[in-house]
């Protein structure tokens, strides 16, 4: 809940201090903004359980010059009103800041209807979205504040999973956390701490990505030792695989994409139960990365890259 708390605190403060900022809700989290709605009745709008109107209203507010934030669970913010994202925002060339909760399966106990592993893959079908996957409440705050200063289309994907420390780069680039001579592991947002644990003692490079669109292929190329990349994403597996391929178009490379499989199992339990089922816990990640690193080949690949 801690990222969601920070979202409420920071957005309320933005509403107090920036007359351009507005907030559109569809009941979700409305209780957290009751005071803001009282203070700014013209700029804090709860449309009820109407997600098409949620996005349409936000887009209309942007048309008037406001900077709207819109919020709900990821499936109701991105999947249900997808055509509104495509047309009311994208085709009208209007901006908004979409802030989701629930991530891929934070609400595992309420079932698949509240899961959204495919949200970022869907946004990838649309041009010019900035996508943040913060791994820490401080990152949430930084992204929300920065977004208030632009008119871009921004998606901020909150999770109940968080890392112990914030590591984001303000410019959206990937942070180099560990350098080795083996594969480069790109850990996205809340996956970082378990990637660091899973790769302890392995000769790998670890990059931290909390802004995934645009994708910082430049840093990936810069740090690449062995031309082998492991993506560890907290959403649909392979979502960023085309970005890696694009960044390394001219380099023969191997790639392993870890993430949530396309079908989410018909079971409840806690998020950690789902992590284990999809191989996204520390043991599962370590096993996959170890199997991906044929030590015999290290030297051959290293030679190829350095020339």
């Amino acid at each position: 809940m801690i990222m969601r708390d920070r979202f409420a605190t920071v957005t309320s403060e933005l509403l107090d201090n920036d007359p351009r900022v507005s907030l559109v809700l569809a009941d979700i989290s409305a209780d957290r903004f009751a005071e803001s709605q009282h203070q700014h009745p013209d700029r804090v709008i709860n449309v009820g359980i109407r997600e098409q109107a949620l996005i349409g209203t936000a887009a209309g507010m942007a048309h008037s010059g406001l900077r709207p934030y819109a919020h709900s669970y990821a499936p109701f913010l991105v999947e249900r009103p997808f055509e509104q994202l495509k047309l009311d925002l994208g085709h009208q060339d209007l901006g908004a800041v979409l802030v989701s909760i629930g991530a891929s399966y934070d609400a595992s106990d309420v079932g698949y209807t509240h899961h959204a592993p495919g949200d970022i893959a869907l946004l990838d079908t649309l041009p010019e979205w900035t996508v943040h996957v913060p791994g820490h409440p401080d990152e949430v705050e930084a992204f929300l504040r920065a977004a208030s200063q632009t008119d871009e289309r921004v998606y901020v994907r909150l999770s109940e999973n968080a890392n112990a420390t914030a590591h984001h780069r303000p410019d959206g680039g990937f942070q180099v956390l560990r350098q080795g001579t083996g594969p480069t592991v790109v850990a996205v947002g809340p996956m970082l701490d378990r990637v660091l644990a899973a790769t302890a003692g392995l000769d790998v490079t670890v990059l931290y990505a909390s802004t995934v669109r645009p994708f910082d292929g430049e840093t990936l190329r810069f740090v690449l030792a062995e031309p082998a990349v492991v993506l560890v994403e907290p959403y649909l597996r392979g979502t960023s695989a085309p970005e890696v391929a694009r960044a390394l178009t001219d380099i023969p490379h191997r790639q392993l994409a870890l993430g949530v499989p396309p079908h989410t199992a018909r079971f409840y339990g806690r998020p950690r139960d789902h992590d284990a089922a999809y191989g996204l816990d520390v043991a599962g990640i370590r096993a996959r990365i170890t199997a991906f690193s044929p030590t015999d080949d290290h030297e051959r690949y290293a030679t190829h890259v350095t020339g």
């Binding site: 098409q52 349409g56 936000a58 008037s64 085709h91």
Partner: peptide, 27 residues
């Protein structure tokens, strides 16, 4: 021309947001 249209059912939600935004701006 204020918007691009074609797919039906988008103008009225946009208009609601626009009217809300103009009111918030004192316009």
């Amino acid at each position: 021309v204020e918007i691009a249209s074609g797919s039906l059912g988008h103008g009225l939600p946009l208009g609601v947001g626009l009217a809300l935004g103009l009111r918030a701006n004192g316009n």
